[in-house]
């Protein structure tokens, strides 16, 4: 049995429109799991169910085998970090971090040493007597983290904790969070809408849309084998085309041309039609027309400069295709080019 388990969770605020529909999620001890999705997908709602702020209409949440679905928030012993930090403005950094320990009636000497130890770990020792308004965004974030961690929570819940930080700080804070999480071995749920942030930090990722988990797997697996078109779009696939089966291990595109796709070997079920997808980076552009399989001719409509490469929008017989091509050969808008879709780079979903 997994450490934290959500079973058939159903949430609806007005009783009609579902926010979460029969959500299932199992998290192992010590794991860092992310909930990833656009705003309104239900990721924060899921986190708030776990945190105890929302009582689901149906379903169960168990932690270490204990049913906690109806346990009051203050009896759960979970650490919580919000996007807005939610520090107590009337308390100093030290008092903020000590808040939870005081409620646990820890005697003052050990309280002090535990708070100071946590402040040292989070590099806040020098700021102990400051008020939140005197701190920078990154420092506030670390206080929020220290405050949540010092009570040795059974579960750490992070709700978009990095979204209010600037890009540079975000990078260093996510390494910091990962380091602390592994060091303390705290099982963590991390909610974010930032795909890169999420993939870099997580052991496993649940991609959510419309209150449903679309795929729950390791970042690597999701990146290379998206379960459906929604997930594929989310992880950077922009080119999609319809495919139909033509005999074993072969398929045809809309134009009736045969396409060679390596992944088709894994799809031996009775399926006869798929959506094929490929990333812009994986398409190879050449100026001269080359005939053969997996090749498309198209004219350049728009070219934009991306820094490392150029992005082209091509008009082809299969529709609009987006390609990122290296800087060494430049194609002007209006010219005809040939796009090669390597057979090992096309995924089926």
């Amino acid at each position: 049995m997994s450490y934290a388990v959500l079973e058939n969770i159903r949430v609806s605020y007005d009783g009609k429109t579902p926010v979460l529909t029969d959500l299932n999620l199992s998290i192992e001890r010590g794991e860092l799991v992310s909930l990833l999705g656009a705003s309104g997908c239900g990721k924060t709602t899921t986190l708030r169910v776990v945190g105890g702020f929302i009582e689901p209409r149906a379903g169960r949440f168990t932690l270490n085998g204990v049913d906690m679905t109806r346990t009051a928030v203050h009896k759960r012993n979970f650490g919580l970090v919000f996007q807005s930090y939610a520090l107590f403005p009337h308390l100093t950094v030290f008092e903020n971090v000590a808040f939870g320990l005081k409620l646990r009636k820890i005697e003052s000497a050990s309280l002090k040493s535990r708070v100071m130890a946590m402040l040292d770990i989070t590099d806040l020792g020098a700021l102990a007597n400051r008020y939140p308004r005197q701190l920078s965004g990154g420092q506030r974030q670390r206080v929020a983290l220290a405050r949540a961690l010092v009570v040795e929570p059974q579960l750490l819940l992070l709700d978009e904790p990095l979204s209010n930080l600037d890009a540079k700080l975000r990078l260093s804070m996510r390494v910091e969070i990962k380091r602390l999480q592994k060091k303390l071995g705290i099982t963590t749920i991390f909610v974010t809408h930032d795909q890169e942030e999420c993939f870099s930090i997580s052991d496993r990722v649940a991609i959510m849309d419309k209150g449903v988990i679309q795929q729950f797997d390791t970042p690597e697996a999701i990146y290379s084998h998206p379960a459906n078109e929604f997930v594929a779009r989310f992880v950077g696939f922009t080119n999609f085309f319809n495919l139909t089966a033509s005999g074993t291990g072969r398929c045809l595109n809309n134009l009736g041309e045969e396409m060679v796709i390596d992944e088709i070997r894994n799809h031996t079920g009775g399926q006869t039609s798929w959506t094929g997808a490929i990333r812009p980076d994986d398409i190879v552009l050449t100026g001269t027309e080359v005939s053969g399989t997996n090749r498309l001719t198209g004219s350049v409509e728009v070219r934009t400069f991306l820094g490392k490469s150029y992005q082209y929008e091509l008009e082809t017989k299969l529709g609009r295709v987006v390609v990122n091509a290296p800087k060494d050969s430049i194609f002007e808008p209006g010219t005809l080019v040939c796009a090669h879709l390597p057979s090992d780079k096309i995924v089926l979903c």
């Binding site: 105890g52 203050h74 919580l80 520090l87 107590f88 409620l103 009570v151 819940l157």
Partner: peptide, 10 residues
Amino acid sequence: EVTEAAESLG
């Protein structure tokens, strides 16, 4: 969120 944080801390 501030009151929620307090509740989560016990």
